[in-house]
Amino acid sequence: MELNSIGLPTGQSRELAKDLNVLLANFQTYYQNLRGIHWNIRGKGFFDLHAKFEELYNDANLKVDLLAERILTLGETPKHTFEAYMKTSSVPVGENISKDETAIRLIVDSLKELLIIERRILLASAEADDEGTNAMMSDFITEQEKTVWMMKAWLAEKV
Rank of each mutant, 00 (worst) to 15 (best):
L3K: 14
N4H: 07
G7R: 04
G7L: 06
L8T: 09
T10H: 02
Q12M: 14
S13F: 01
K18Q: 13
K18D: 14
N21E: 14
V22I: 14
L23A: 12
A25S: 15
A25K: 03
N26L: 00
N33Q: 04
N33H: 03
G36M: 06
I37N: 02
I41Q: 08
G45P: 00
G45H: 13
F47Y: 13
L49A: 10
L49I: 07
L49Y: 03
H50F: 05
H50P: 04
K52M: 04
F53N: 05
F53I: 10
E55P: 01
Y57R: 05
N58T: 13
D59S: 12
L62P: 00
L62C: 02
V64N: 10
V64L: 15
D65Q: 10
D65S: 07
L66H: 08
L67K: 07
L67V: 15
A68Q: 13
A68F: 10
I71Q: 08
G75S: 08
T77M: 07
P78V: 12
P78N: 11
H80V: 14
H80Q: 11
T81C: 12
T81I: 13
S89W: 04
S89I: 05
G94A: 09
N96L: 03
N96T: 08
I97Y: 04
A103V: 05
L106D: 09
D109Q: 13
L114H: 05
R120A: 14
A126K: 15
D129H: 09
E131H: 03
G132A: 11
G132P: 02
T133A: 12
N134L: 14
A135I: 11
M136L: 15
S138D: 11
I141E: 00
E145R: 06
K146V: 03
T147I: 15
M150G: 11
M151C: 15
E157T: 09
K158N: 07
